[in-house]
Design a binder for these strands. Sequence first.
DNA 1: ATTTTACTGTCGCAAAGATGACAGTAATCT
DNA 2: AGATTACTGTCATCTTTGCGACAGTAAAAT
Lengths: 218, 218
Amino acid sequence: MFQLSEKEAAYLDKVGSVINYPKGQIIFSAGQKSNEVYLIKSGLVKIYRTAGDGRQVSVAIRYPGEFIGLAEVLSDYSEREYSAEAMDNVSVLIIWQDAFKKLISDFPDFSSKLLKLMCDRLRESQNTIYDFIMNPTQGRLALVLLTMAERAGHEEKEGMMKVNLRVTQEELACVIGSSRQTVSSLLNLFKEDGSLVYEGREIVGIDVNQLRTWIQDS
Amino acid sequence: MFQLSEKEAAYLDKVGSVINYPKGQIIFSAGQKSNEVYLIKSGLVKIYRTAGDGRQVSVAIRYPGEFIGLAEVLSDYSEREYSAEAMDNVSVLIIWQDAFKKLISDFPDFSSKLLKLMCDRLRESQNTIYDFIMNPTQGRLALVLLTMAERAGHEEKEGMMKVNLRVTQEELACVIGSSRQTVSSLLNLFKEDGSLVYEGREIVGIDVNQLRTWIQDS
DNA sequence: ATTTTACTGTCGCAAAGATGACAGTAATCT
DNA sequence: AGATTACTGTCATCTTTGCGACAGTAAAAT
């Protein structure tokens, strides 16, 4: 996927500043002016919007190494469309618009890499739509957990991912468009059949193959 | 939204060739090599994938003036991820990869316009996810019809869009992830309350404000 | 260490919507 | 025009899942 070159990374480190957000802190809110982008150093970030009835709806989760707040800056859209919140203790590099645009113009490759990145995200997003239509709740939940395993974990042995996920059932429900209670039962099913390994309230292990059996088709 | 400059349009007309697809014809299929992009001159194009169980799932509908097959070419993804089918009699301009890439390198503005386009599409796609989570079936159906009114119709009087949509209930069901029967009842509700005006099996009028009352929140 | 808070488990009811069946109707074909 | 095909309307039934309620438990705060 997206990979910064050494020079690009060095430039970003130079012009950006590190900020830490504790779990639950809001990084930016929908409606705010968009003058900066962020590069996630560590932690998970939820991209969401709060509906009129107060319900939160997540449209994506971003992982270490990924940019957030990019779309608005690239398309000169002055206001944030979605909010971003730290799901963990999160460390980001904040880069102001001007510095970021300078990066685009100074590093010719970077711009085309960004274009590819947006294509990838579009594809990813379309796949999410596809999954929403094709999979009932358990499939969607399994898919989200699989993505978390892939992007925030590391393989321990064949098919067994070691992760450290303290994510509430409520949060998962917002991502898959379901209810807290349903997520609760499903997670227990997954736990019973060995797809998930818990330690207290933290998911520490994910058996990729086992979990995949809950997904329809594809 | 996306607007070609006169020079760009002229270039595309020169290097591209017009092809007509009758209703129902497949323009490209998932899994095929992706060596070309298309610019829709007229008609609606469904972007979809056929699931293992034979069910079709649409992730987007593209309208006149929009490109299709773009993401794969821009990100050098060699295979089509989704299929494209003419929902109407469709006329497209086909542009081969090389000519398209030449356009990108020869017209400096074009590339940044494409980047913005992909950002817009990402946003649109994320909004679709949001709508899926927030709205029950009737809301999703209303949203799709509204988009069709906006992009494929023209305003007749205040809030009343004149359209010519011959789209089957089955097709709508694939777009909103519902069943043919449910769409049938909903369309009748919409018709009864004046949101839609039919002529035979063709939707010819859409009352935007009335239809919007079916949508949750936002 | 105790209290408080936040999160989880589970149950029962209600609502939404999927599915199968079949009749009815518009559109198309010959 | 008549026949065929493709699409639509509607109903009865069955699943899924949402929601309220409340008890239980882990984690955090004091």
